[in-house]
Write a protein that binds this DNA or RNA. Structure first.
Lengths: 188, 188
DNA sequence: TATGTTTCTTGATTTACGTCAATGTATGGC
DNA sequence: GCCATACATTGACGTAAATCAAGAAACATA
């Protein structure tokens, strides 16, 4: 249940047994069936979600009704409408499960409490955000610099398993290109 | 000298007089003339730079020799090749001044020391990264979802002064479009 | 096994935006 | 005040990738 979480935490910080025992109290477990919504644009995003098993996507829907995926999150990833979570604004993101999933929810008050009661969690999140920032930076560079083909190949290099696990149509949306274009890239 | 920095810090955390007195010790001041390089791709990025006055840009250069701006940083912003700074890899970014600038440099060892000696700085950086993450997220959505015109208008809405301060050619590069396209957008 | 649903492929066509090239307009150093 | 350099505009043209449309696989449900 919390194994995946501990593993993630211990990649960045060290935890005492006391920390380990108290951390679960801050979280709530939730199961999502494939396609089940966790958050809808317009609602307030009141939690950070940690993915224990399965996979989720976060995305916007534009005026034409087209989905634009901002994040694909599988085991060990956090997903949320961060802006909404932090500043109590309405969410612009939808989040739903693309596989049956088990997630751990951290509410805002518990998040803040956790940072105080387990000070090394402040450090964990600083490092987590620091790393995410780097990843997002590279994605932005990639998005503004590369051709569709380069973007796709770059993604496969970073996450070689992704094409087995995530449908092409979702990968396309994540890269801001179309599934037809990916088909043509694969054909060579 | 440190006023801009204190102001930024105090937007996110509160500082004791003792903190205020000790913080400058961790930084080194540097002046850059317009066009002067702070970092070159291939070097190791050993500092975080805080912009006290002026403006800098960070960018990649692709095989065709074209610049792709990843960040425009003016007073109150931090700029760095984060990935290089954190993980001691070679930088992929160039950073230079687009106006005469005064910056405060924080070396990695001082950064780590500062986080320990002034614990509220751990909190400051967690919040800073948290916010940057939100901004980057929106930029990515924007980059994958919007047309050139929407991207440009969106930027003007976020930073209304930007077109007075930053040359159009740099704004274009930042948005991943061309200066010709911006000209055409402005014509209507 | 059949039946719908989702995903992937392929071709024909369109389009937003880039590229190239020429000209115009600021801006700053001497 | 002049010249050089940087920056912006405009037009003609090319192209990468989107859109539209139709089938073909793959997968899931009964």
């Amino acid at each position: 249940m919390f194994d995946e979480l501990y593993q993630q935490l211990e990649e960045k910080i060290s935890l005492s047994e006391k920390d380990k025992n108290c951390i679960p109290n801050f979280f709530e477990t939730k199961f999502l069936r494939k396609k089940q919504l966790l958050l809808q644009a317009g609602e307030y995003c009141r939690t950070l979600a940690f993915v224990s098993t399965g996979a989720l996507k976060s995305y916007t829907i534009d005026e034409k009704g087209i989905e634009h995926i901002s994040l694909l999150a599988w085991e060990g990833w956090w997903v949320s409408d961060f802006k909404s979570f932090i500043s109590d604004e309405k969410a612009i993101l939808f989040i739903d499960a693309i596989e049956d999933s088990e997630i751990l929810l951290l509410s805002k008050s518990n998040y803040e409490q956790l940072l105080i009661e387990v000070p090394s969690m402040e450090r964990y999140f600083r490092i987590l955000y620091q790393n995410s920032l780097v990843t997002k930076d590279r994605r932005l560079i990639s998005s503004n610099t590369y051709t569709a083909e380069e973007k796709y190949n770059h993604l496969l290099k970073m996450y070689p398993f992704i094409s087995q696990r995530i449908p092409q149509i979702l990968i396309a949306s994540y890269l801001g290109i179309t599934t037809e274009t990916i088909s043509r890239i694969k054909k060579g």
